[in-house]
Amino acid sequence: MQRVNMIMAESPGLITICLLGYLLSAECTVFLDHENANKILNRPKRYNSGKLEEFVQGNLERECMEEKCSFEEAREVFENTERTTEFWKQYVDGDQCESNPCLNGGSCKDDINSYECWCPFGFEGKNCELDVTCNIKNGRCEQFCKNSADNKVVCSCTEGYRLAENQKSCEPAVPFPCGRVSVSQTSKLTRAETVFPDVDYVNSTEAETILDNITQSTQSFNDFTRVVGGEDAKPGQFPWQVVLNGKVDAFCGGSIVNEKWIVTAAHCVETGVKITVVAGEHNIEETEHTEQKRNVIRIIPHHNYNAAINKYNHDIALLELDEPLVLNSYVTPICIADKEYTNIFLKFGSGYVSGWGRVFHKGRSALVLQYLRVPLVDRATCLRSTKFTIYNNMFCAGFHEGGRDSCQGDSGGPHVTEVEGTSFLTGIISWGEECAMKGKYGIYTKVSRYVNWIKEKTKLT
């Protein structure tokens, strides 16, 4: 034993070699072989497995989906700052455009905790909710729209109204504003409101030439003092309507412009014939205590009207009353817009006519005020429907199939267009061939041609 100890002390290297040989010859039971080890760690190889990531292109799944990435790591994937920024906006807080917040056709661009709407022409605001041009839906104005110097929408209202708090709607500024039905039992019968379409306001006024200088022999019209197929109006439903009495009662109609003036057809009036105007009328054979009678003290036909040349060209006249009318729910003026808007309103496509005229061709006159909704007829169809001249200051309205029309005794009465609950004068009943005849239409004086003249002559002093 002493000898062994001496050998170990003198030859430590020998001992180490012996131990190493023993270990190498022993069977290893701690580690699995290569094949079995792979069965336990069965993990798919990654895209760049075996390579240094710093030297390969980034992978979106590896960089940002398996674990949260930084902007720089995302930049490695896209290799483009702009594309990385677009991805980053949604990656950080989701897609803010998912709810489609942009209105009126706006395009949404996502941002971090926010979004941006790219608005089409005519709109602005956070969600493109603000109209900035009158060309689109009248700028959301209830009545009139004008573009300011910086191309912003400025709404306005006709006389007797003021802008509401929203700067879009119009509200009454006087007790009985024009064009409004205020009798409670008839307010439910107000005709369907007309909503502004998209309009090209630059070209809204037709490029028409008034044929002022045409000389033409007097034409022989049949029954051209021209509501057939209409309905009984309720008291106060058309408070701007008046009836004219002269040699015979209810020979023509008219509309209240203001307390002192009536507008009617020029062919209705004769110099030297006494005319009485009755406002607030409903049943011409009954006294309903809503009527107001006034005498006409002055007749002003349009300066281009000449019955000797043509009885229905420039067929418009103004009547001055001896005493002002007292405005109330049964006696209310009709609204008159400017030339541009009167023309736009007419193009809405349908209007209402009213009167006490004959209820059928050569038949009896109506006792109760009649009204009828009539569609506008395109000019080409209008011209083809008659052998008589249709001037540019006239328009056609009615039904091709016949059966409904204005008729004798309705002449001078109103053709009105309702705009968001307020009625505007767009025409004056003038003439036609018979009444409600198939293929024939009622012919009306186009008020847009005469609004400046009306307003100039009827100013209240």
Rank of each mutant, 00 (worst) to 15 (best):
Q2I: 07
N5C: 12
I7P: 13
M8K: 14
E10H: 15
E10L: 13
L20T: 02
G21R: 04
Y22V: 08
S25Q: 07
S25V: 15
S25Y: 14
E27K: 05
C28A: 10
F31C: 09
D33A: 10
D33F: 04
A37Q: 09
K39A: 13
I40S: 05
I40F: 15
L41Y: 15
L41R: 09
L41W: 13
N42M: 09
R46C: 05
S49V: 13
G50N: 14
L52D: 07
L52R: 13
L52P: 15
E53Q: 06
V56T: 15
V56D: 05
G58T: 13
E61S: 10
E66T: 07
E66V: 05
K68S: 07
C69M: 04
C69V: 03
C69W: 03
C69D: 04
R75I: 06
R75W: 04
E76D: 08
V77Y: 12
F78L: 14
F78E: 15
N80D: 15
E82W: 04
R83D: 10
T85C: 04
E86A: 15
E86N: 15
E86F: 05
W88Y: 07
Q90D: 15
Q90P: 09
Y91G: 15
Y91R: 10
D93W: 05
Q96N: 13
Q96D: 14
E98Y: 12
N100Y: 09
P101R: 05
C102Q: 00
L103P: 03
G105K: 08
G106M: 02
S107M: 08
K109T: 11
D111V: 15
I112Q: 15
I112T: 15
I112S: 15
N113S: 06
S114N: 08
Y115F: 13
Y115C: 03
C117K: 02
C119S: 02
P120S: 13
F121E: 14
F123V: 05
E124V: 14
C128T: 02
L130Q: 12
D131E: 11
T133W: 08
C134I: 02
N135G: 15
R140L: 14
E142Q: 12
F144C: 00
F144L: 05
A149E: 11
D150G: 12
D150C: 04
N151C: 04
K152S: 12
V154A: 13
C155W: 00
T158W: 02
R162A: 08
R162H: 10
A164I: 05
Q167E: 06
Q167S: 12
Q167P: 03
K168Y: 14
S169M: 11
C170K: 01
C170D: 00
P172T: 06
P172A: 09
P175W: 04
C178H: 00
G179D: 01
G179S: 01
R180T: 04
V181F: 05
S182G: 09
S184A: 13
S187A: 10
T190E: 10
R191F: 10
R191P: 13
A192M: 10
P197E: 07
D198L: 08
V199F: 14
N203V: 07
I210K: 06
D212M: 09
D212N: 10
D212K: 08
T215D: 06
Q216T: 12
S217A: 08
T218D: 09
S220F: 07
N222L: 09
N222H: 05
D223Y: 06
D223R: 10
F224Q: 05
R226W: 07
R226F: 07
V227R: 12
V227M: 11
V228Y: 12
E231L: 07
D232I: 11
K234R: 12
G236N: 05
Q237N: 06
F238R: 04
F238A: 04
W240Y: 03
N245H: 09
G246R: 00
V248L: 09
V248W: 08
D249E: 03
C252W: 01
G253Q: 09
G254S: 01
G254T: 00
N258K: 02
N258C: 01
E259F: 03
E259Y: 03
E259A: 10
K260A: 03
K260R: 12
I262K: 01
T264I: 03
C268M: 01
V269Y: 04
E270W: 03
T271R: 03
G272Y: 03
T276S: 08
V278G: 03
G280T: 01
G280S: 02
I284S: 08
E285W: 10
E285H: 11
E285V: 10
E286D: 11
E286F: 09
E288A: 07
H289Y: 06
T290G: 06
T290W: 09
R294E: 01
N295V: 03
V296P: 02
I299W: 07
H303N: 09
A308C: 05
D315V: 00
I316T: 01
I316G: 01
A317Q: 00
A317V: 04
L319I: 08
L319G: 02
L325Y: 03
L327M: 11
N328D: 10
N328R: 00
S329R: 09
V331Y: 00
T332Y: 05
I334R: 00
I336G: 00
A337F: 01
K339W: 09
K339N: 10
Y341R: 14
Y341F: 15
F345P: 02
L346S: 03
K347D: 06
K347H: 10
S350Y: 06
G351P: 03
Y352A: 06
Y352Q: 03
Y352G: 04
V353N: 02
G357D: 10
G357C: 11
V359P: 05
K362H: 13
K362P: 11
S365K: 12
A366Q: 14
V368Q: 11
L369G: 06
L369E: 06
R373N: 12
D378V: 03
D378R: 07
D378F: 03
A380F: 13
C382F: 03
L383Q: 12
L383M: 08
K387I: 05
T389Y: 08
N393P: 02
F395N: 02
A397E: 01
A397D: 01
G398M: 05
H400M: 11
R404V: 09
D405E: 15
G409D: 06
G413W: 10
P414K: 02
H415G: 02
T417N: 11
T417I: 06
E418V: 08
V419N: 06
G421N: 14
S423V: 11
S423M: 13
F424Q: 00
T426M: 00
G432A: 13
E433H: 14
E434R: 05
E434M: 14
E434L: 14
E434P: 13
M437T: 12
K438T: 12
G439S: 12
G439E: 08
K440C: 09
Y441I: 11
G442K: 06
Y444R: 00
K446P: 03
K446G: 08
K446I: 00
S448L: 02
S448Q: 06
V451W: 03
W453S: 01
I454H: 02
I454T: 00
K455A: 07
K455H: 12
K455C: 04
K459V: 13
K459R: 09
